[in-house]
Amino acid sequence: MSLTELFIIAVGLSMDAFAVAVCKGLAMPRMNWKGACVVGLYFGGFQAVMPFLGYVLGSSFSLSIRAYDHWIAFLLLVIIGGNMVKEALSHEEEYTDSSLDMKHMTLLAVATSIDALAVGVTFSFLNVDILPAVSFIGVVTFSLSMIGVKTGNVFGCRYKSKAELAGGLILILMGMKILLEHLGFLPF
């Protein structure tokens, strides 16, 4: 997997965290970098740990399903991306809370990184060098989460659904690319 592909996946995975960070920034009466850093550390940390756990799980059975692993990767990414698109297009109001306590942030970080677990399983099928990949995903998510807090504090939640929609579409396109490569339709 190229660095460009990894960056695209990292951005796609970070969009849930970015969207929640935007709402965190909206809920903060005044933007402070310490709070933004806390949000970034939670989201970036969980976005790095979850694909690693998925990779470990996927590695345990990847040899037995090598013949159709590209279909599994495709389905996982399309399902994850489709759910993100669905959430982006729903018009449900979400509660925003400026709390940065450990329990609250851990629940949010787990919720925004579940899709990264499935991507980690996909990485095991693709034989991705996992430690640099998850570190890169964590750094990208940390950075985008901090930007999200600032954006939310300045502009509000109006970009939340657009970020989720973009992230979902990116993951769907990456799933399609993986499938097409393995079927021989793309020469890369």
Rank of each mutant, 00 (worst) to 15 (best):
M1G: 04
G12E: 00
L13F: 04
S14T: 08
F18H: 10
V20Y: 01
G25F: 13
M28L: 15
P29S: 13
M31Y: 15
M31D: 15
W33H: 09
G35M: 06
C37K: 14
V38R: 08
V39M: 05
L41W: 09
G45Q: 03
M50R: 02
G54L: 09
I65C: 01
R66C: 03
A67P: 14
D69R: 11
L76G: 02
I79E: 04
S90V: 11
S90C: 12
H91C: 12
E92Q: 08
D97S: 11
D97K: 07
S99P: 13
L100V: 10
L107V: 12
L108H: 13
A118C: 02
G120A: 02
T122F: 08
F125Q: 00
F125E: 03
I130A: 02
P132K: 03
P132L: 04
I137H: 01
T141R: 00
F142K: 00
F142N: 02
L144H: 10
M146E: 06
V149R: 01
T151N: 04
G152Q: 10
G152F: 13
N153F: 15
G156C: 03
C157D: 10
S161K: 12
A163Y: 09
E164W: 11
A166N: 13
G167E: 05
L169K: 05
I170Q: 08
M174G: 02
L179P: 09
F185H: 10
F185I: 11
L186F: 13
F188S: 05
